[in-house]
């Protein structure tokens, strides 16, 4: 038993808290795996300090946090590379400590110090942290923690831009199909944030990487996995039909191979997928400047398409009326295309 006056006193100021966290995280390196007891003790120390940090950042349910302390702690965590330590040590921490960390991370990133988001800036100059978080989707134990931290980062356009253009971005196409639904759906939700949060960033990215991106995306849309098909189709509507991406959309609807994908999805056995596919298919058909190849495909398949569309109904209230109206227009347009001379079919 130790006497209380031998124990270091509980850190109180933001500087002390930041230092205590850094020291206790660094101490984890010194302990070897063989020294189980020592490691356990070191982890306990980290957990204790995280509790103090959390209390300082969000209050304890009874008292509100002191904003000045919050912003000072954010500053201190950047100054001493505390943020990097937090990320790198996450995998060896215990269950509750990880959750505290995620919670604190979210508050720290949003913290403004002298008009700048110092923690976001810190991440911006330490991009490897973002790569680390992305790759962690492969580690089931920490995937959900890292996913939440990533989404906090993606709120900042510059950080989202980095991830989109990084080599690790392609990994998302794999992560969204992981067998664990909880991990896969979390990865999907991050993927969605990346493609929808910042219009201009996304539009620039899609313009520069059009072919690679849509090649990969086609694989999602044609995946044998129902959840992947349904979610990726819905997401496509979410970003493709948004104003900043209108030039991307105009390019997309000229391509016969994408039209074919939509026609496949119109025939899907899931009604939800059929309806979502219709909302993209209709743009191909309604395009006043349809290329010849698109017209040919529509004309060749007009009977099947008309029948398919006639049997399709959205099935509820106001949405239904609009859907029916659009459907009629699209069926008419396909009819018109079919009657065009010189299509050679």
């Amino acid at each position: 038993m130790s006497f209380s006056f031998f124990k270091p006193s509980r850190p109180k100021t933001p500087q002390e808290v930041a230092k205590a966290i850094n020291d206790s995280l660094t101490a984890l390196d010194i302990q070897t795996v063989a020294e189980v007891k020592a490691l356990e003790k070191a982890l306990e120390e980290v957990e204790k300090n995280f509790g103090i940090m959390r209390c300082m950042l969000v209050g304890d349910g009874e008292t509100e946090p002191n904003m000045e302390q919050v912003s000072q702690l954010a500053f201190e965590m950047c100054k001493e590379d505390g943020l990097a330590l937090l990320v790198h040590k996450l995998p060896i921490l215990g269950w509750e400590a990880r959750k505290d960390l995620v919670h604190c991370w979210s508050v720290l990133l949003k913290q403004k110090v002298d008009d700048t988001y110092c923690c976001a800036q810190y991440v911006e100059s330490h991009y490897e942290l973002l790569d680390f978080l992305v790759v962690s989707y492969d580690n089931k134990e920490i995937a959900l923690n890292c996913g939440a931290m990533l989404r906090d980062c993606i709120r900042f356009p510059i950080l989202a831009k980095y991830i989109l253009e990084s080599a690790s971005f392609v990994l998302f196409f794999k992560f969204v199909e992981l067998p664990n639904f909880d991990v896969a759906s979390d990865a999907f939700s991050t993927f969605k944030d990346l493609l929808t949060k910042h219009g201009t960033v996304v539009s620039e990215f899609l313009t520069a990487h059009y072919d690679e991106f849509f090649d990969l995306y086609e694989k999602l849309l044609t995946s044998p996995n129902y959840v992947t098909r349904r979610q990726s189709l819905k997401l496509l509507t979410d970003f493709l039909l948004e104003p900043p991406n209108s030039h991307i959309m105009k390019r997309y609807i000229l391509e016969v191979r994408f039209l074919k994908v939509m026609m496949m999805l119109l025939k899907d056995s899931s009604k939800n997928i059929q309806i979502a596919a219709f909302h993209i298919f209709k743009v191909f058909v309604a395009n006043p400047n349809k290329p010849r190849e698109v017209k040919v495909i529509l004309a060749k398949n007009h009977e099947k398409l008309t029948e398919l569309l006639q049997n399709l109904s959205a099935g509820k209230g106001d949405e239904d009326d609009q859907f029916e109206e659009e459907k009629e227009l699209i069926i008419k347009e396909i009819e018109l295309v079919t009657q065009l001379p010189n299509l050679g079919c």
């Binding site: 269950w95 909880d182 759906s185």
Partner: peptide, 23 residues
């Protein structure tokens, strides 16, 4: 039955994550 869940699957994702992360 996911086909019966009309909207996107965010609600379901949250439910599952809560059940996995809470201990």
């Amino acid at each position: 039955d996911l086909e019966k869940c009309n909207n996107d699957m965010d609600m379901i994702r949250r439910e599952v994550q809560t059940m996995i992360l809470l201990d």
